[in-house]
Design a protein around this nucleic acid. Structure first.
Lengths: 129, 129
DNA sequence: CGGATTTTGACAACCATTTTCATTTTGCCT
DNA sequence: AGGCAAAATGAAAATGGTTGTCAAAATCCG
């Protein structure tokens, strides 16, 4: 039984950037979907656990999700204005993290890397904030 | 009036890794300090805003703070077992972030980079979790 | 079809953080 | 000093995202 989960996944695919669970829920309801908030949370967690979507925390502690194109390891370049997100690879960063870790005797290195900025269409026309 | 704030800062300095606001509060009370939770939160925010301490979010959405040795830009290598933290610089990463950002037409680039691992003393003696 | 199992979702519970607001402390001016 | 206005403090209540509970509904399977 994966209908609901797929529905959530689809909704996420239609979005350009990261969306919160509440966002997804609201959007699905708008489109007439019959689904509960609880289920959205569970679906999102399941998708995240299965590596189907990426998760990150906003500055105010909200979890936001995104269905990414590639399932290989990558990072994000997020526009802090409109939320548009680009997936970027950074082999150099991966190596740097590994190196820094082992230099200090750490093992099982993992890392989180997110880059924020203002995208072209947001920085031009619109004024700062 | 900065007595309270300094007290909070001092408490943070005595810690090896990142501590949550509630942690700091509990610790201060243990040592007999007369301070309220609210004030701890406010002090922590003020310190963070002033760049006196670094902040990051744990996986479960809690904000954790740390008084860092240098006030120049740096990142952290955190032991996921004991919380011990090392401050690391990564000029290469800074440049990479800038480059990636401008390649996509983004401006005002910022980034978050945290490296996690298991430190030497934790990986040896103790078993995995 | 019938019972066992899983999924769902409304609602309550959680819990870190924030807000409110009355009280206390501090700063400053005379 | 005295006194008042502004800032700081903290107890308690409010907030809000997320998780837990549990009964009803859907799905499986023999």
């Amino acid at each position: 039984m994966t209908t609901r989960r797929d529905a959530v996944h689809d909704t996420l695919r239609k979005s350009e950037g990261f969306r919160s669970a509440q966002d997804v829920y609201a959007e699905m309801r708008l489109h007439g979907a019959k689904i509960g908030l609880t289920t959205v949370y569970r679906a999102l967690q399941a998708l995240a656990d299965g590596g189907k979507v990426d998760v990150l925390r906003t500055d105010d502690g909200e979890s936001v999700y995104r269905a990414c194109a590639t399932d290989t390891h990558h990072h994000h370049l997020v526009c802090r204005r409109c939320g548009r997100t680009a997936e970027v690879a950074g082999p150099a960063v991966e190596r740097w993290a590994e190196m820094v870790g082992s230099e200090h005797g750490f093992t099982e290195i993992t890392h989180t890397v997110e880059v924020f900025g203002t995208c072209a269409s947001c920085s031009g026309p619109a004024k700062t904030r």
